[in-house]
Structure formats: structure tokens, C-alpha cells
């Protein structure tokens, strides 16, 4: 092949519309393959190189920064409608590398790798000296708050027994002394008010996930639990995720599971 003078790739401006299209396709890919944690939004395009690809098309080698939104990964709300978590809520940033193929005007992700990290405590303190910080998810107060909230939710729920899927976020609030938690649940084949041993309950084949937010407040004579769960529409039984070496993103969160439900799905209202 004739030697192509120069670096072999073309430079593009990071704010070029074509670059932005590639970056948005990449973030859509992440959000539709995220299995735990929260959806992310594009925040800044750091670098881009465009390599020619034989026989046709181009590959965008792109580095982007994202910010966590307040929508859980399996929430059917379109990511574009999800608010970016504010600095004072202890924001979380994603750093992602992608290879995005552009062919016949279409963008498709060939490779994705993302890592996420919370903002520093100092930065949160700068914007809000009294705001609570993210707490370690294995903190005993967090585990207790989730357990109490899930028990309260199931106790008032006359349908399926819901079991914990993951604790997504937690904060220890200094005043009033309380623990704030956000966690994901899934319906099982047990009836909530008949469960004797939750270990005998199994997730439904058609997954029905929910997302709960709860505050456990310490009182003089005990503790108060306030919990609100939003149950998402059932998910069709999904084929096993690609595992034949296709580069699925290094999840920003711990583990993998089914892709998020179709965005058109109508959400079941919040259940308190």
C-alpha cells in the first residue's frame, strides 16, 4: 500500500459535529449495556483520532469524560432525560476509551473501556460544607439501612417478594443522624406476605426490576424507615450477553446482567 505521509490518521476538532456524533453513539452504547450502577451523560471529549479502515469506513479512536446521572442503569427512562448528578450530591465521573466505526454514515462501537470514580471529598466540601459524602457500600450502617428498607417495602407489598440486586449508592447523613441508600431489587416467585425463607425464592424468568430510595433515621426510641420504590416493567427473557471476545465495556460497576429494557416501556408508578 502506498505510504501515507504523516501520522496515518486525521485529526478532528473535539467539538466537531462528527466527533460529537461518534461520542454520543459511544455513550448510548454504554448506557444500553450498563448492567448495574447509573446511566452516564457525555461531559467532555478529550481526544480523537480518525483512522482509515480498509476496505471502507473510518475508526474514531476517542477518549471522553462522562458524568453519572441519577437514573439507575435498568431504568427505562431515556438517558437524555436523566439529570446529571450535582456536585453537592457527590458526583461521579467516568473516563472512557472507545473505538467507534463510522461506515455508510452509521456509527457502531467496536471497543469500549470505562472506569468511574467519585469526586473528591474536598471538592464536595468546597461547594457544600455540610453535604453528606458517599459512604462505603460495605459500611454496617448501610447494610442495616438497606435491610430495614427492603423489609419495610416487602411488608407493605401484597405482590411478589422482592430481593436485593445491588446497593447502588449510600451516604451517612450527620444531621439528623441518618443513612440514605439507593438500591435495586428484583421480583421473585414468592409472595411477599407468605415468605418464610427468602433463600427459597427465585428471580422471575421475565425479570422485573425496581429501584428504591430510602432514609433510615435514628430516633430516641428506635429508628424510622422511609422507602420509595419504583418498579420497572418486566424485561423479556434476554439472550445471553455476547461473550465471544466481543469487547463489551468494562462495566463502570461490578457485574454484568441483561441490557436495559426498551426505552418506550411505560414505567409502573412508584410504590411507597
Amino acid at each position: 500500500a502506498p505510504h501515507i505521509p504523516g501520522p496515518g490518521y486525521r485529526e478532528l476538532n473535539c467539538d466537531d459535529p462528527e466527533t460529537e456524533q461518534a461520542a454520543l453513539a459511544a455513550v448510548d452504547y454504554i448506557n444500553s449495556n450498563l448492567l448495574r450502577g447509573y446511566k452516564h451523560a457525555l461531559n467532555q471529549i478529550d481526544k480523537v483520532k480518525v483512522w482509515p479502515r480498509r476496505p471502507t469506513g473510518e475508526v474514531f479512536e476517542i477518549e471522553i469524560d462522562t458524568l453519572e446521572t441519577t437514573c439507575y442503569a435498568l431504568d427505562p427512562t431515556p438517558a437524555a432525560n436523566c439529570s446529571v448528578r450535582k456536585l453537592e450530591q457527590h458526583a461521579v465521573e467516568g473516563d472512557c476509551d472507545f473505538h467507534v466505526l463510522k461506515q455508510d454514515g452509521q456509527f457502531s462501537v467496536l471497543f469500549a473501556k470505562c472506569d468511574s470514580s467519585p469526586d473528591s471529598a474536598e471538592d464536595v466540601r468546597k461547594v457544600c460544607p455540610d453535604c453528606p459524602l458517599l459512604a462505603p457500600l460495605n459500611d454496617s450502617r448501610v447494610a442495616h439501612a438497606v435491610e430495614a428498607a427492603l423489609a419495610a417495602f416487602n411488608a407493605r407489598n401484597n405482590g411478589s417478594y422482592y430481593q436485593l440486586v445491588e446497593v447502588a449508592r449510600a451516604q451517612i447523613v450527620p444531621l439528623p443522624v441518618s443513612t440514605y441508600v439507593e438500591f435495586a431489587v428484583a421480583a421473585t416467585d414468592c409472595v411477599a406476605n407468605e415468605v418464610t425463607d427468602p433463600a427459597n425464592c427465585n428471580l422471575l424468568a421475565e425479570k422485573q426490576y425496581g429501584f428504591c430510595k430510602s432514609t433510615l433515621t435514628q430516633k430516641v426510641a428506635g429508628e424510622d424507615v422511609a422507602v420509595t420504590c419504583t418498579v420497572f416493567p418486566t424485561q423479556p427473557v434476554l439472550p445471553q450477553l455476547l461473550t465471544d471476545g466481543t469487547n463489551v465495556p468494562t462495566p463502570m460497576v461490578a457485574s454484568a446482567g441483561p441490557a436495559s429494557p426498551p426505552a418506550a416501556a411505560v414505567m409502573v408508578g412508584p410504590m411507597v
Binding site: 476538532n13 473535539c14 457525555l42 467532555q44 471529549i45 478529550d46 481526544k47 473528591s120
Partner: peptide, 27 residues
């Protein structure tokens, strides 16, 4: 500035292509 004849004058500020604009905030 007025360039001396025969001296190359920079064609104005070079637009730094990357990193691009920040859409929300930087942490």
C-alpha cells in the same frame, strides 16, 4: 501586528482542537 515584508505572520489564534467543551461541570 504589522508583519515585516517577507516575514511569516501567524494566521491568528490557533484553535486548540482538544479537549473539547465541558457540557456540565469538571470534577
Amino acid at each position: 501586528g504589522v508583519g515585516q515584508p517577507g516575514v511569516a505572520v501567524p494566521a491568528g489564534p490557533v484553535v486548540r482542537p482538544c479537549p473539547g467543551r465541558i457540557r456540565h461541570f469538571k470534577i
